[in-house]
Computed example of a mutant assay.
Amino acid sequence: MADIRNRIAEVVGAQSAEQIIHILEEEGAQRCRDTNCIRLRPHSRLSVHRWRHVAVAPLSPGVLGRRCLTCGQPSWRRIHRTGRTIR
């Protein structure tokens, strides 16, 4: 974390860097509660998310059915179910 702190301090100054690091630490400690994120295991707000979206055409045929152009997953996967919560 010291390396990141130094890099931020070079850009915005020491006092602002401390404030930014404090905000990032708080966000890292908070759990993600976004209803469009489909990750099953608990993770922080700063972690990588997998967002729900509508399957985008043209849907190319595949072994397991038609595939979404955006993510490449079959269109029946839960990542394409919008408006429903998993939790």
Rank of each mutant, 00 (worst) to 15 (best):
E26K: 14
P61I: 03
R87P: 08
A57S: 14
P42M: 08
R52H: 12
W76S: 06
P42A: 04
P74K: 00
I4V: 10
L59K: 13
C37F: 08
L59M: 14
L40A: 13
L59C: 14
R87Q: 13
S75H: 06
R45D: 01
S60L: 12
R50E: 15
L64D: 15
P74I: 08
I38N: 02
S16V: 09
I4H: 09
H80L: 04
L46I: 01
L46V: 01
L64G: 05
L64F: 12
T35S: 05
R78G: 15
T82P: 04
C68S: 03
L46K: 01
Q73F: 11
R77E: 13
C37N: 01
A29S: 14
A55T: 05
G65V: 11
E10M: 07
T70V: 10
D3K: 09
Q15A: 10
C71N: 08
L59F: 11
R33G: 02
I86Q: 09
R31G: 00
H49K: 07
N36Y: 11
E26V: 04
H43N: 02
L40W: 02
L59Q: 15
Q30V: 07
N36F: 11
T70E: 12
I21Y: 01
A29M: 09
C71R: 06
I21G: 00
R81W: 05
A14P: 13
V12D: 02
V54T: 10
D34N: 15
E18K: 00
